[in-house]
Write a protein that binds this DNA or RNA. Structure first.
Lengths: 217, 217
DNA sequence: TACGTTCTGTGATCTCGATCACAGATCGAC
DNA sequence: GTCGATCTGTGATCGAGATCACAGAACGTA
């Protein structure tokens, strides 16, 4: 057996095969039977559920190095969400069976997956809290700060003061569970405070600290 | 080594030690460093986070056979929620270290935990969806149906048509993320429809089917 | 049985965000 | 450049639920 990969994403890339995607290409749909797990190699992948009302709820945006689709592989239940490419992307795909085999072969891999699921659960709970207590402005602000963090860690760009987040307002809205209009108004407030600038398909956080303190009250 | 327990709860009961609790006794608080995992033996345990507003959000009610506190043991991060006894209860307590040791010793145990975390994650996502789309009445109804299910599966009682759920309205409210008043009004609607009766500290679902159809629209 | 405490039930406001409805801005494609 | 499609920004209305404020009911206990 080869040396054990240190992350699940690495395992999937090593043993799986690459798939190239164009904007909007589906990886799987809600209700599908599970047959594979995925890891993002480049680009982004949207994980969404469609609500009875027809509205979409964005459960997550997977970035390079992140794994998705593992829940169904683990418990054998159908997909609870759909996955679509968000812009062009490349993902690695590993059949569920091989994934499960690997888990049994490599004990420390199971621990890694456990840790990853733990942190996903934590984030889910935090999101649940946010949904309960906060108003739209606060929720939007928190998500922006989260995204700033991701972009920075992930960033090809140098550490400039301002961070550009490539996302449409409607997607932001789906993410925080609000309408596009409410989100636009929230961004308007941030703009008035001078901590955020907005453009078509992108949001620029020019003063992270200001945004943070504006949201913390 | 002994025969591997088939569930995580069994493992904790076998290897851990029992703790008796009276109503309201705390097991741990938000922010605590992790030092143990727990399984409910009898009674119920409330898992709650306190929001900035001072309001409480009930993340779960753990019943006999269920495990809690495993997240912190797995990823080593502080407790994200607090746990209190809800009425008198008995729980088994196993130090985190021993839990982790057992995970390494018994490979299939890790898979069991993975499955359990998967289903927790699924439920968290469902809850997030519910929070987004539905109105209070619908959310309250759905939770009641869930509780009916639990009580029935768990039930010492025979399968009578009506199911008694021992819970205060304020806890129901914390659970679905609404105020006590809004919850009381929702229950009032169910009462008018004749599918639910209410009392102090208990809610009786007299017509499950009616409740189901009332909520499904 | 009397009294205090904890729940439940409901009215009266008030506020935030959903909904509807456009006008302007930006971008891609021809 | 011109045109159509897609985003963004905002105003007006409306409704569900939060908030405040009590009254009555149920329970524990002295």
């Amino acid at each position: 057996m080869a040396v054990a990969p240190t992350t699940v994403a690495e395992l999937i890339v090593e043993r799986g095969r690459l798939v190239e995607l164009r904007d909007g290409d589906p990886l799987f749909f809600e209700g599908d039977r599970s047959d594979a797990v995925f890891a993002v190699v480049s680009g982004r992948v949207r994980i969404v559920v469609t609500l009875v009302t027809g509205a979409e709820l964005l459960l997550g945006l997977k970035l390079p190095g992140e794994v998705f689709g593992e829940l169904s592989a683990l418990d054998g239940r159908p997909r609870a969400a759909a996955a679509y490419s968000y812009g062009d992307a490349v993902v690695a795909r590993l059949p569920s069976v091989e994934f499960l085999d690997a888990l049994e072969d490599v004990p420390e891999l199971a621990l890694t997956v456990l840790r990853e699921l733990s942190s996903m659960l934590r984030r889910a709970n935090v999101r649940l809290q946010a949904r309960n207590s906060n108003r739209t402005v606060v929720r939007a602000g928190h998500l922006l700060l989260e995204l700033v963090d991701i972009v920075r860690r992930h960033g090809d760009a140098g550490a400039t003061a301002s961070v550009v987040i490539p996302i449409r307002q409607s997607d932001l809205a789906d993410w925080i569970g609000a309408t596009r209009e409410a989100t636009a108004r929230a961004l308007g407030e941030f703009r008035k405070q001078g901590c955020v600038e907005t453009g078509r398909g992108k949001i620029t956080v020019v003063d992270v600290d200001a945004l943070e303190s504006f949201v913390e009250l």
